[in-house]
């Protein structure tokens, strides 16, 4: 029996009258990697921000291990520690070194000791190939390095689930791979992840399940990513995928 980790029930999100997410539901099992794709501005990023309670929702509920995630709730800090998030623009703290960026929250929020937090930080940095850059400031790093550091900053909190919001969208093409490889290795190690991305090849390689999202709704859902990417069922998904594929365009 698979264990449901994250459960989203009928959530509704609107800015004023503009509906961004419309009656959206999803259940993510422990160890599962769910990839969300869809055109820009379709509400994918907003969805991730809602799950981390950075946005309030107008209806429905978000449950992690059966506990509700609510923006103004008392336990929100505890809940957010369990939900790691990595942003498109890395958003490291520019006034702190990489190591300080990573150990800040473990020390201040989880009240761990500095030596212990630093030890784990260095271990994680070693895994992503950044151990030698631990004393650098964010602006001295390349985009790819910054993003790997941001992933470590989320991982050190030992989140139950990791939300990745277009983490390669701001990167130069040659840096995309180094970041995605880190994510692939996390998936192999059994991490639960909810990923928003525009990298179709990556999505195909990593996803246990793919959601095609448009206008705040799921248009198509598939537990067989290989099949989804070659033979999407809906017309919308087919048209969307086609925009990524120049060869098909020319051949057909």
């Amino acid at each position: 029996m698979e264990q449901v980790l994250l459960e989203i029930n009928h959530i509704q999100k609107a800015y004023g009258t503009h509906v961004v997410i419309d009656d959206f539901s999803l259940a993510v099992n422990k160890g599962e990697v769910v990839v969300i794709i869809g055109p820009s501005g379709c509400g994918k990023s907003t969805l991730l921000r809602c799950i981390n309670a950075l946005e309030d929702i107008q209806g429905g509920e978000i449950l992690l291990n059966g506990e509700e995630v609510l923006k103004e709730a008392k336990n929100i800090s505890k809940m957010r520690q369990k939900i790691g998030m990595v942003f498109q623009s890395y958003d490291l703290f520019p006034h702190k070194t990489i190591l300080e960026n990573i150990v800040l929250a473990p020390i201040k929020v989880q009240k761990r000791t500095r030596p212990e937090a630093e030890k784990e930080a260095v271990e994680l940095l070693t895994k992503v190939g950044l151990a030698d850059r631990k004393d650098a400031y964010p602006r001295q790093l390349s985009g790819g390095q910054k993003q790997r550091a941001a992933i470590v900053r989320a991982l050190i909190m030992h989140p139950k689930i990791l939300l990745l919001d277009e983490i390669t969208a701001a990167l130069d093409p040659e840096m995309v791979r180094e970041v995605l490889e880190v994510v692939l290795s996390l998936a192999k190690a059994g991490s639960t992840m909810l990923i928003v991305t525009h990298e179709m090849a990556f999505a195909k390689a990593i996803a246990d399940r793919v959601l095609f999202f448009e206008h705040g709704k799921i248009v198509e859902e598939s537990s067989h990513p290989k099949e989804f990417f070659t033979h999407p069922v809906t017309e919308r998904a087919r048209a969307f995928l086609k925009t990524f594929d120049y060869e098909t365009e020319q051949n057909s």
């Binding site: 981390n52 957010r80 520690q81 790691g84 929250a105």
Partner: peptide
């Protein structure tokens, strides 16, 4: 987003 990314790490 600086404040948000701090909050997403569980900071108040």
């Amino acid at each position: 987003i600086q404040s948000e990314s701090a909050q997403s790490l569980g900071m108040s």
